[in-house]
Design a protein around this nucleic acid. Structure first.
Lengths: 224, 224, 224, 224
DNA sequence: AATGAATGAGAATTCATTCAT
DNA sequence: TATGAATGAATTCTCATTCAT
């Protein structure tokens, strides 16, 4: 039975022996543990044994599911993000409203949820580790950066076309929108996780930030 | 050997024999090498031998100047940043103009220079490593986050008081200003260092970003 | 499945259901696989899982038949050789001819067959592993070396008594006869299995070798 | 200083610091220990730590001189044999006598010395491990089998040409000469190292064996 | 009997740090 | 001071063996 490490794999039919039920859950449990630890300590400083332990299995078991620590890293990154990106794209496609509205609702929601989910850790992880794993750079560009930029860019363009926004340079605006939000995710898992400094009301910040950008690119209302 | 001598290491008096001058530069050369490697590969994945090698000394020599790899990390972080922060504060203090102008010139300049200097790497380094070294978190909060936020916050407040800006929530605006710029530094040393994805015109982005924020917080001009 | 059923495993009565016949062959299939792999890779470098796999069963099943990997080694060695030795002795006993003739026919045949059978691998295996398993040394001395030397020695002695051979030192001649033939078996499973070097016409070599020895020990014919 | 791991490297001048004197000896000490253990237990069953220990150094030190256990294996094999082969060739080249005499003296001496030296273990090692390391097969064929066969073959041929020997098939005779001697070396480090079985007077056997072969290939004396 | 998931002791290798020179 | 050989704790990964199903 080729164990599909499906993300939200429905647990195997209760008829299946407990043995196998465990087996189906292992990959996901290991991925969870690995993500948590890689994000917290970094790839190199995380011991495989600790991952196994946190997943409730022994050292050896990890290697029944993943061929190496590096393999685990790849999987952690690709699995946790693709779903969120796909979901975001689906939502936008389904949404009828104006660009401004789209950004105020969907974008705010999506990032708020992302920030609060485990996926936010992936941003920190990727930022910290890409240079050691060129393969991850490709994966990330292909699966996240490119579609993400394309998606948000298209919303901005739509707004320009509809006369909601000024004729801004789309690429630059996308960066202005996204970089702080990415940084928010990164921050949450680095300095933000320490108790020093004033805490950051993320929820509010996202809203305010989008608002700020919208004002910044809004077409000035000329007429009375 | 083209290493930039440490910013705050007083160069030995030119009268000193070349041999001693060399020795006096050792710590700084080690710091340069360590920063470069820590930023690129991360703390755990950097070998002390490589640091020594890049600094042109032997493994053992490193321990004559620093008590441990971790010690080196602390020094790398504190040395490179304090100077830049202090410099920024001095400039602002010396500047007479309006808040808007201050931001358009000093802020843009400071970040542009920071981004291009080695100091930008420190952001990535800190982001990646704080959670493993609580001590760094304190250091950073005390020496960088706090004074930096205070500084920019005061500019914004000045703008509000002077009627240049709307009565925005200062803390939030500071984050809106700073997070993307920090992210820019971080990015430069992670995904930005890979060849994938479209490159980012940093120079322009900084200007555009500040501009965007200024528009976002600008007080609407109502009257003719 | 084309494994040669074990030499001395009595085949299950043909009346037995196919299912059970299959089961009865398991041990022998495991032995075949183990021999093949131990000979090729050595004991330590062979994984039990591979043995099981080549025998067409699962890892766990192996332990239903053998208590450990080492147990398997012992069985492999003792099973494959005792039969061949016994057979050789029987043949010699049944043969009426002169010592010279006996060596030219029986000895040549026996070694030719041995070399071509799986049993030849056992020589390499034993040579490689005895020092790690003193138990095997005993087994081998008792079951193979001793009876073998005794057998060939007796033929040589018979030849001396009959005036066919010179009064050579029997023990030494036995070694001269046997060592190259053993080496031939060993060679076949080590360097001979690699494609380098000129191949060796084993068949011819055995004949030539026995011939050489016979000439070496032949009683010089003095008279007309 | 590129440490030449010369075989019989003269110890560095006594002026050299003890530190360095040790360093020059390490490779050879490690090689000795490795050979001894690899021969006794086989490659896979030998622990690197044990090698280091027997060489009087710590585990880590081994890796300062050899990049891996496998590297050590290669070195062990190539270093210990090339010298002996070269020596043998030199001696033969320098010898004036008849083929028969050459074989009775040089061949006997060379093999006697080889058998008694550490080099004899290499035969067992190679026989046991070639199939796992194709690279060794090449090395062996190139450095040992080929020149050795060529050398002995040339002696035999010389004997034939000079009318000392019958017009035998040279290749086959070479095998008849060499295989038992190789087997003797192999035997010495496998079954021969166990206390079971009657011991083998190697010295005498070599002489007798060569003698036997010489008689076997001698040209029958026809005339009165 | 048969399976194969799980285990954990064990082995190779790395690397921060020490210290004799 | 500077060196670099040596160390050994720590880490990744393997594999014989067990055991619930």
């Amino acid at each position: 039975m080729p164990h599909t490490p499906a993300l939200n794999a429905a647990p195997p039919s209760p008829a299946a022996p407990a043995h196998q039920r465990r087996k189906a859950e292992r990959p996901s449990e290991l991925l969870d543990a690995a993500l948590r630890l890689f994000v917290e300590k970094g790839f190199a400083a995380t011991r495989t044994e600790e991952i196994a332990q946190q997943a409730g299995v022994s050292k050896g078991t990890l290697y029944l599911y993943y061929t190496s620590k590096e393999d685990l890293l790849r999987e952690v990154i690709s699995q946790r993000v693709s779903t969120r990106v796909a979901e975001g794209m689906a939502r936008v496609a389904a949404h009828p409203g104006s660009a401004t509205e789209l950004m105020r609702t969907l974008l705010v929601d999506w990032w708020t949820q992302t920030l609060e989910s485990d996926a936010s850790g992936v941003f920190k992880l990727v930022v910290s580790e890409v240079r050691n794993f060129p393969e991850i750079a490709e994966l990330w560009a292909r699966e996240v950066t490119a579609p993400g930029a394309q998606l948000i860019g298209s919303i901005v363009q739509r707004g320009i076309d509809a006369g909601e926004f000024r004729a801004v340079e789309v690429g630059s605006v996308v960066h202005s929108i996204v970089l702080p939000l990415v940084m928010l995710c990164v921050h949450r898992h680095s300095l933000g996780a320490c108790e020093c400094g004033q805490p950051l009301d993320a929820q509010a910040f996202i809203r305010d930030h989008i608002d700020l950008v919208l004002r910044g690119i809004a077409r000035p209302v000329r007429d009375a």
